[in-house]
Nucleic acid binder design. Structure first.
Lengths: 253, 253
DNA sequence: CGATCAGTTGAAGGCTATCAAAGACTGTGG
DNA sequence: CCACAGTCTTTGATAGCCTTCAACTGATCG
């Protein structure tokens, strides 16, 4: 919470918000991110990397939603996870010749090149130790969300899955300053929700109506409102991944 | 394939097999692994780390199977992924205060402490660059398998899921020298298979029988035989994650 | 204003779960 | 060596969640 408040007029606000909620960033780290300048953008529906392709160049998502996706030969599609504003692509990745999925933009997106951040990450410069911590934490969070996705798909009902997913999206968006406890942007079609939860479009529609009837959730016009967040948490057994500042963020050796 | 063949009488054979199939290890790296000596073992059914606990200390699995698991309050259980002989626990992990799941041993297991390897990983010693490559590749593979798990659970039928999982287990086991193209050890109960595939025990039983009737797969006495591996691949749309030696294993900067 | 796309609704059916109980297998102790 | 308990596997019957198919509405757009 130190240096970040001083200059909020930064293009990478979302990313900066997110990282500084993961570790207390120094002035130098904040400035490194603020000085990022190489912007780019794409429309909705673009494939950013095919399955066997080399890793994507590092960048932050400033705005817009994407998804990592896998297809089956007969057209079935599964969304592996979402990529939200403030999150990163190809940052902190292990150098890896195997690209693991295709990325698809679900809305128009804006990026900012993160090569300087990646460079700081690969260095051992103590100036950016906090930044490395934050990015490692972000990667751990990503993994935690992926594991939640497995639990949802494997052992939860359609009803529980949707509640669980909505709570996760709320928490992820609030990390970068988008959305609040009870409402947040949700620029997804029901088809996209279906592909993320492993359900059919029709069933997504019916479960959403049930949630609406029961006064739990209202999804309309690209936004979601959680009317009874606590009840939702119980229904879905949702647990926010703990980002505990107390726990030491240091390697073992 | 260089130094490894010379001394096969090594306790960490499985781990060494696996890593040297991921990168061409130098004499020094091979010796580092061969010199690991701190053995330990546990019986089946032991929980190794609870969900919110700190990361586990680094070690290699020499023998035995484990699973990472999450539970729901009403007793439903989902296996997130399997941990097989030759694979590692807590090696190459980001320093992370969030432990993401509970680990459970499914059979008696033997470990060997991997602290020296972890130390080489955290260093920048060029001697062990190849070893770092191999371990990074192993981590990428783990992620690829996790993504496959999502696809299985979200968009495949019970029949396809089982075929896909069996093919994955075959490939993972063959990497460390256990099992072959058409048969491999499978020390799992049907309940465990059910928890891994998100199905009920009864249904696993019926699908296994169907696969047997059709002459595709025979699972008996802790072993699996794939009678028509090619047909299975087609059914499950299984794709072995490419470990291409050609692709450069170097960071961008 | 036709066309396209997202959302909605109804009916029918299939895949998979649940319940219940009977066989097989394993290891133990007498 | 056998009885026995416990776990794993198998089988049948029933039910239900969710899918598929089909059609209709409403909105957006050139």
């Amino acid at each position: 919470m130190s240096a970040i408040r001083e200059r909020t007029a930064c293009r990478a606000v979302t990313a900066l918000n997110r990282l500084s909620s993961l570790a207390d960033l120094s002035e130098a780290s904040v400035r490194l991110i603020q000085d990022l300048s190489d912007l780019s953008s794409i429309p909705a529906g673009v494939e950013l990397g095919s399955e066997r392709e080399a890793a994507l160049r590092p960048r932050f998502v400033l705005g817009g939603w994407a998804a990592r996706v896998r297809w089956l030969p007969d057209g079935r599609r599964q969304i592996l996870n979402f990529i939200l504003p403030g999150e990163s692509i190809g940052v902190c990745e292990r150098p890896s010749p195997l690209s693991l999925a295709t990325m698809v933009s679900l809305t128009p997106m804006q990026f900012i090149d993160a090569v300087p951040v990646q460079r700081a990450l690969n260095s051992t410069d103590p100036t950016f130790a906090d930044l490395r911590d934050a990015i490692h934490m972000a990667a751990s969070l990503d993994e935690a969300f992926l594991l939640s996705q497995v639990l949802r798909l494997g052992r939860q009902t359609a009803y529980e899955r949707l509640c669980h997913l909505l709570l996760e999206l709320r928490d992820r968006l609030s990390m970068c300053g988008l959305g609040e406890e009870t409402h947040f942007p949700l620029p997804l079609t029901q088809e996209t929700l279906a592909d993320a939860t492993g359900l059919s479009i029709v069933h997504i529609n019916r479960v959403l109506q049930q949630l609406r009837r029961e006064g739990l959730v209202a999804v309309h016009g690209g936004r979601a409102r959680l009317l009874q967040p606590e009840l939702l948490r119980t229904i879905a057994d949702y647990r926010k991944p703990l980002v505990s500042a107390e726990a030491p963020l240091r390697p073992l050796f």
